[in-house]
Nucleic acid binder design. Sequence first.
DNA 1: GTCTATAAAGCGATAGAC
DNA 2: GTCTATCGCTTTATAGAC
Lengths: 207, 207
Amino acid sequence: MPPRRDPQKHAEVLDAAIELIRQKGIDGTSLQDVADAVGIKKGSLVTYFSSKAELADLIQARFTEVAEQELAEIAGREGLNPEQRLRELLHFHAEHCTVRLSSPVLVSFMQLWSAPGTPAGRKQLEIRRQYQQVFEDAVAECSRKRIFRKVDPELVVNGLMGAMSWCAFWYEEETHGPLRPLVDSLIDMSFVGLRPRPRRAAASSQT
Amino acid sequence: MPPRRDPQKHAEVLDAAIELIRQKGIDGTSLQDVADAVGIKKGSLVTYFSSKAELADLIQARFTEVAEQELAEIAGREGLNPEQRLRELLHFHAEHCTVRLSSPVLVSFMQLWSAPGTPAGRKQLEIRRQYQQVFEDAVAECSRKRIFRKVDPELVVNGLMGAMSWCAFWYEEETHGPLRPLVDSLIDMSFVGLRPRPRRAAASSQT
DNA sequence: GTCTATAAAGCGATAGAC
DNA sequence: GTCTATCGCTTTATAGAC
């Protein structure tokens, strides 16, 4: 399990597996596919992981590790006001979902997240909670600085992350062009609804 | 394939399959599971569908049929202004994703939606396009009536539907209470960002 | 460390008796 | 319409030679 002799080859195998699962999902990817992709025989994969479940764990660990590192970097970056920080966090999340994960992988994550019974599912749930907490803290900070009005951070983040995550299911670079300006537009529209109300606002659809 | 003698039993089998797929996803559900759930032998399932692919088609057809009926009902309902109509459409979508589909089923839909190469995938893509078109029309109508400013309906709908669909991944009735007020809050916040700008608005984070 | 070979299990699909 | 039985295939996992 630990990369004993050849960590580079370990990374190569993992990269190939990630790319395949990115395209076809975890269920649609067999160990034979992985072996073919790296040019070794199926039986030799045991050198790099002892089971398919462990492969899935390794991939998930890598993704969440990357995500947490980037989130921590943004959270600690200098020279950003709270709104810009939240914006950067949302940009990262959108890109993480669309470019790096792709919808099949996102879907696999979701499936694990929605199986909280298993130990792995519980662990995933905790990771997701931590991940989301960073966003909720950023929203709360915006409220504290009167950039946003007082809002429920959990609800707001669920809405924002939904809009961002959903990009994985509709965004295509050839059709829509670069992702960033699209996401910026979405964020702009969303943030307007979070501003402090000058006199009154937001109320309009009372039946 | 057509329910020749016992349409009730057909519906029962389909219900059981839906419930299983709701829990474990399409790949995680074997025909043996379905047969066990309805108390017949695996081989007897051919009476109700000739292959697993056809089972998936039947389930998808049922869901999309229900969705299209409801959407048409809302689109044609009397006494709603364009904003209220859009709001009702979004409410339906949120409930459709959370309560009726649940995240694993939504996830299965996504998986099929993201395989546009196959004929079935192409058909699903067209269904989704039609489905989404109803929402985009509603947004465009709001813009025409100056309830919203001029916006890109596709982008706006993608953002709104993302926030709604995402509810399937975080909403739990025991934790959060009734779904409707939560969704209303999300819609309220989003709509504020779509209003015509009185003088200037929305610009605040220019670096 | 990689290979061949195979075990063991589960899958969807099908044939034929009742 | 349902059953039993089985086929053919794919999958993961493992054992042992080089």
